[in-house]
């Protein structure tokens, strides 16, 4: 495997809630252009790691270096601005906006029209608005739900809502797309379609960080995988090695027995 350049470096990230340590000095590195999996039993700290990375939580220890720049904690919109987009484990769409409007909101970050543009509707604003619509249409096409463009987000099927969330995240032009359990609640066909979509996104130049419960999906899709257990990274390697790691097996078996 060729060594790709680094995109994200997490350095001893720590987070606790009250007395409970949710993350204990987790370090990992994600390389440009790869699909990186983060797995672990329930409550292992995967989503907490995600929330720290995307600025939703403030990590108490450690730091992230993304694309050569140290990330500011506690500022989700800044994380999005430097190129980290995310989806949520429990889908968070703007339910009373249409699918295309959801994606158009995703374009907010990369467009500029302000109050005066909005009020005057000058040519620049109109051109930008047109570009926003076109890009949103393209993205809906890309994830395969363009036929539902004018349906309200809350009326979409579960699988389509997942896709819409991905489209909205892609609209922010991320370098890293972080997916929080995208396959949760999906059947086999839907999961397979998702796998194809994620592979396509990666091929088109976006690095993917995948949190997943579905070990099979992760093993089939990811180039490298890290395993979290009780807030600690217990293993990080290519899927074939991770699968045979005794600590990983114990974590999963132990987890399922208890």
């Amino acid at each position: 495997m060729s060594e790709k350049p680094l995109l994200l470096e997490a350095h001893e990230v720590a987070k606790h809630f009250g007395g409970v340590k949710a993350l204990h000095d987790v370090s990992l590195t994600i390389r440009r252009g790869e699909i990186y999996g983060l797995i672990g039993p329930n409550g292992a700290g995967k989503t907490t790691f995600f929330n720290c990375l995307t600025g939703l939580y403030k990590n108490e220890g450690g730091y992230f270096i993304f694309d050569g720049v140290k990330l500011e904690a506690d500022a989700p919109h800044k994380a999005a601005a430097v190129g980290i987009a995310r989806t949520f484990q429990n889908i968070r769409l703007f339910g009373n906006m249409t699918a295309i409007e959801n994606v158009m909101v995703g374009r907010h970050l990369r467009t500029h029209a302000g109050v005066f543009g909005a009020i005057s509707r000058n040519p620049a604003t109109r051109a930008e608005e047109g570009a926003i619509v076109r890009r949103a249409e393209e993205l809906l096409h890309y994830v395969g739900i363009h036929e539902r463009a004018h349906d309200y987000a809350k009326h979409l099927s579960y699988g389509d809502q997942r896709r819409l969330e991905i489209a909205r995240a892609l609209a922010t032009e991320p370098k890293l797309l972080a997916l929080d359990e995208p396959a949760a609640g999906m059947n086999g066909t839907e999961t397979e379609a998702l796998r194809v979509l994620v592979e396509g996104i990666c091929r088109d130049g976006v690095t993917v960080l995948l949190i997943e419960h579905d070990v099979k999906l992760v093993m089939g899709l990811c180039e490298r995988v890290a395993v979290l257990d009780y807030g600690e990274k217990i293993c990080e390697d290519v899927p074939a090695v991770v699968q045979k790691d005794s600590r990983v097996i114990e974590a999963y078996l132990g987890g399922s027995v208890a």
């Binding site: 939703l56 999005a80 339910g95 909101v105 970050l109 909005a118």
Partner: peptide, 22 residues
């Protein structure tokens, strides 16, 4: 407008709006 959509997004789900870079 872009601003109006952002306001609506915030009304709908502020966390998601932040994650969209607003």
């Amino acid at each position: 407008s872009r601003i109006g959509r952002a306001w609506q997004a915030i009304r709908e789900d502020e966390v998601a709006a932040k994650a969209c870079g607003i």
